[in-house]
């Protein structure tokens, strides 16, 4: 029996070591061109190395946060360094573990949570593009121990190995994209980031809603319904965990709803009502509220009728100004 177990352990360890070696050499890494999540973590750690408490305001969220805010504008307005720690398709459950890791290297004074991450989902049952986004976010985190600790909460047993290994996840590149495998083999170190200062923004959209899209809104009505955008138990639990963590660390918390075009969401008041019990008495700047409809003109929004609409740089600029004013006016942030 002992001999058998030893042989099996040898097989598992040897095969595991070879896969780990391939992972370490990044043989099956995806193309780095657009990995802004990795870039965020790189700069967060870099600032932390440079100075303790290098970040004053930390924004958690997903693509809505990194396209809908200009941290440079926010930093200038507040006179404090603001950093967006967001990842594409992020859910608040993942945001909690990102925050947990971020707090090991920085201690912001204020945490801003973008509410688009607070949705109805089952974290361990994510699939398709949502799961891919989760893998991407997880892969870019750097603290191995915290990653290990968070794995059972983020992934099902069957998905966890994929989260840890690019080789398992992307081995099909051998047939689908052999050129990339060959390139990775020759270039095991990813290209260095060269920005002098990077605060997490990612401006993708510069032109706003165009006439045919506006016409479609008029013709077909809003593609999304605020009443259907409910908050699930996983999200609620994660918000409570974030609030508890911040309370323990003495970090103030506020919530921010970055808007989509007012014709995009039916019943915004229902969306507000869905989020309100989770947010409770914490400060909340809800820019989806009808009072801001005229301020956020069509040029503020990505030209799409699809469900997931982002802001243009114009929208991000306006949102940043309003957020800065809100923070400065809130007596609790003095």
């Amino acid at each position: 029996m002992k001999k058998f177990i030893l042989e099996i352990l040898t097989i598992v360890l040897a095969a595991g070591a070879l896969v780990a070696l391939l992972d370490a050499r990044r043989v099956f890494a995806q193309e780095e061109g657009n990995n802004h999540t990795g870039k965020r973590w790189y700069y967060l750690y870099k600032y932390a190395k440079q100075k303790k408490n290098a970040i004053d305001v930390l924004v958690l969220g997903n693509s809505h946060a990194y396209t809908g805010l200009l941290p440079e504008v926010l930093s200038k307005e507040l006179g404090r360094r603001c950093f967006i720690l967001a990842s594409q398709g992020n859910r608040i459950t993942d945001s909690y573990y990102m925050l947990e890791e971020a707090l090991t290297v920085c201690k912001p004074k204020l945490l801003v949570i973008e509410t688009y991450t607070i949705r109805n989902y089952r974290q361990r049952q994510l699939s398709g593009i949502d799961l891919s986004c989760q893998f991407q976010s997880f892969e870019n985190r750097r603290n191995t121990w915290l990653k290990l600790k968070s794995t059972p909460f983020l992934f099902s047993v069957d998905n966890a190995p994929y989260a840890w290994s690019q080789t398992l996840r992307n081995h099909s590149y051998l047939f689908d994209n052999p050129a990339l495998v060959s390139y990775n083999w020759k270039h095991p170190v990813p290209p260095a980031y060269r920005d002098k200062e990077y605060l997490g923004r990612f401006v993708r959209f510069t032109t706003g809603l165009e006439d045919p899209t506006l016409e479609r809104y008029r013709r077909e009505g809003p593609p999304e319904d605020g009443a259907a955008m409910t908050v699930g138990a996983d999200a609620e639990r994660s918000v409570q965990k974030i609030l508890a963590l911040c309370k323990k660390k003495g970090i103030k918390v506020m919530f921010l709803t970055i808007p989509m075009y007012h014709g995009h969401i039916a019943h915004p008041e229902a969306l507000h009502a869905n989020l309100a019990p989770v947010i409770g008495n914490y400060p909340w700047l809800d820019l989806q509220a009808p009072v801001y409809n005229d301020f956020f003109t069509p040029d503020c929004f990505e030209n799409t009728y699809n469900a997931n609409q982002h802001q243009t740089s114009m929208g991000a600029y306006k949102t940043s100004l309003l957020l800065a004013r809100f923070i400065l006016n809130d007596s609790r942030n003095k």
Partner: peptide
């Protein structure tokens, strides 16, 4: 064999 399965096997998320 395990390495072959890992690299050339047809498996994956979804």
């Amino acid at each position: 064999v395990v390495l072959l399965l890992v690299l050339l096997g047809h498996y994956g998320i979804g």
